[in-house]
């Protein structure tokens, strides 16, 4: 069964859709587009798809990925156009490519994600808070596991940080661990930034997922890299 990998964007009102809403939305759009999608077996037959990583509600993204299995090969250019014509505003497929046979499960391969954070009251304030946060030796966040609350340090899971200033605005670009093994939630970074200054921000913080990275042959690559 041929597998195709889609990179899509989630913008505007679509940022309020939950992961489950997105699954349903793609299933329906694929049927409207009449893709020859393969079905899972069992009592509840659904289109066979694997999403890379759920995006928290409220975030925008230009780096969402999903693998779709089809019964017969499709012509990527045409299929992409037809699918985009079947998607509601706010959701757009940016790229589409066949996945070579034997490639790992997309969800299991995710290792890192790159996010953009914007502080609503301006770059000045963001820069101040970021400096304060960087000086902290440990970035402790509390996580709820099945049994108890657990405190962990997420600082080692932040791989790359870059603060860009342009005029009065500023954007923080972070590459952090993401996936089933170790994971940094964007909301946790926001909580830490809140601790590093006076006053909070309107919920949710302006966060955008810019890229997602998977592991292939010991290397981090974007899911569509060949």
């Amino acid at each position: 069964m041929p597998r195709y990998r889609l990179r899509y964007a989630k913008r505007w009102a679509a940022r309020f859709l939950s992961h489950l809403d997105m699954v349903r939305l793609f299933e329906r759009a694929l049927r409207r587009a009449a893709w020859p999608v393969s079905l899972t077996g069992g009592f509840n037959r659904r289109p066979k798809m694997v999403f890379a990583a759920a995006l928290p509600v409220g975030l925008t993204s230009t780096a969402e990925y999903v693998d779709v299995w089809v019964e017969e090969a499709i012509e990527p250019g045409g299929a992409l156009a037809v699918l985009n014509a079947s998607l509601p505003p706010g959701v757009e497929v940016l790229a589409l490519a066949p996945v070579p046979e034997g490639r790992a499960n997309l969800m299991a391969a995710v290792r890192a994600a790159r996010y953009l954070f914007a502080w609503p009251t301006g770059g000045e304030e963001l820069a101040r808070r970021w400096l304060a946060l960087e000086r902290r030796p440990r970035w402790c966040v509390v996580r709820r596991t099945k049994k108890a609350l657990r405190t962990i340090d997420i600082k080692p899971l932040v791989y790359e940080a870059h603060l860009a200033r342009r005029g009065s605005s500023g954007i923080l670009k972070l590459t952090v661990a993401s996936g089933q093994e170790s994971n940094v939630r964007p909301g946790e970074v926001v909580e830490l930034l809140v601790e590093c200054g006076e006053g909070g921000f309107p919920e949710p913080f302006c966060i955008h997922r810019l890229e997602l990275f998977i592991e292939r042959g010991g290397r981090l690559v974007t899911p569509l890299e060949t």
Binding site: W12, A13, A14, F16, L17, D21, R28, A29, R32, G58, S86, P88, P89, G90, P202, E203, P204
Partner: peptide
């Protein structure tokens, strides 16, 4: 509505339209 209110209410999609 977009920048402030929808961010703090439950199920904002109820007020967004844009459905197929």
């Amino acid at each position: 509505v977009d920048r402030e209110i929808l961010r703090r209410v439950s199920k904002p999609t109820r007020y967004c339209a844009g459905e197929w």
